[in-house]
Design a protein around this nucleic acid. Sequence first.
RNA 1: UCCUUGGUAGCUCAAUUGGCAGAGCAUUCGGCUGUUAACCGAAGGGUUGUUGGUUCGAGUCCAACCCGAGGAGCCA
Length: 447
Amino acid sequence: MAPIVAITNLKDHVGEEVTLQGWVYHKTGKGKLVFLQMRDGTGICQAVVFKGNVSEAEFEAATALTQESSLIVTGLVKAEARAPGIPGGYEVDVRTVQVRQIADAYPISPKEHGIEFLMQNRHLWLRSSRQWATMRVRAVIMQAIREWLDGNGFLNVDTPIITPAAAEGTSTLFEIDYHGEPAYLAQTGQLYNEADIFAFGKVYCFGPTFRAEKSKTRRHLQEFWMVEPEIAFCDLEQLMEIEEQFVSHIVQRCLRDCAAELKVLERDLTHLQKVAPPFPRLHYDDAVNMINAAAQKGELVPGYPDPVPPIEWGDDFGSPHETYLAAQFEKPVLVHHYPTQVKAFYMEPEADRPEVCRSVDLLAPEGYGEIIGGSERMSDPEKLIASIQAHQLPQEIYQWYVDLRRYGSVVHSGFGLGLERTVMWVCGLDHVRETIAFPRTLTNMRP
RNA sequence: UCCUUGGUAGCUCAAUUGGCAGAGCAUUCGGCUGUUAACCGAAGGGUUGUUGGUUCGAGUCCAACCCGAGGAGCCA
């Protein structure tokens, strides 16, 4: 039998006879011709079955194929400009057809479908080309994340998923039974990361995190993946430099390796191509002024019919504020020095202005908004204890965390990048639920 | 949790003032040697989300409930 070739590699086999194994993505007939669009997981190519080139039984079998039927064909690879597919431009002139299974009537057609139907059929929807492209970009982003961190002296030290207490509020935790004791699914690995840097210098954890928030928006999942780097001897300014290098690497790697996928997604690449250091920095004070100036002028939130609402200094940004800010820049923007009051207890206040803290969020352009949250951490044990008390958190639980500041404390910083939001931005999608194979949303965990 | 909005064939949708339940795609059968979500002809396919109410008569009006979608708050 001719060698088995992946559709993505067909261009290297023009003029050769090859074997393809896959599924019928689409079929049209024309009397003595059957045009199959065949899918093998690496791409889609047209396979042409001409009655004169195969046995009568094989032609009948080809005629009987339904969408998603599984089959193995052999045939001659031709360059053919008319041939559709991913990447397209090549087709297989079929010589033999082996049908593995004739698929039952497949519910997902090439026509339009509603999101409810598609989510109920997520196990099948993953086969569709846009979903295929998105999941492949996700995998490349994960590779790029590890590649950059591993190549820049970070050690991957993973943090526990089962934890006894929350880093942030307790209302958004999934509780589980740890042999009779209540335990929670982790919302972040950050506190453990801070322990790890004192052993390894620069570390990161990368895995799923869980938030039982009652959020029903295009930007939220109950279970999502986050990569959290943490760095010893690193202040806020150095952290921002790391973030812009890191994010630029991820985007450039996708542009290099995901051209076919981004084309399927019809992604406009002009903004992505500009993602390179340095990123603009925006102080919270200036962000507030920008928002209020826009509110005064009655500007609309990009993509929405509503005007930009005004904001009072000291409040956290609402969703419309963030969308507005993120749309004002061509590159990702680093918004720093948020009010201490709206941020977590462990963030370092600015020395000569304690009402703001040394925190930074990275907002993706084109209105995509926050994909990174990070800060310089409090490094003085007494200040940290005071902050824990001020936030009315149980001191015993954070004893070990305070301990880190007693044995060689240093200035240190870290951040968390949300994988699904990053995939959403790179792919140009309008909802995070398409960025993970089986999303867990507020109201749905099936399939 | 709140606001807005929707649920009719496998899917996407239509059905005038309350008056016989409709189309395209998909499926099955027939035709066609270059189709690109092909085209032409034929057939099958319905407890109109659920329960109750008003009415001679309800997909349509009323009430409650169920399940989605968009947005807010909160966040990555």
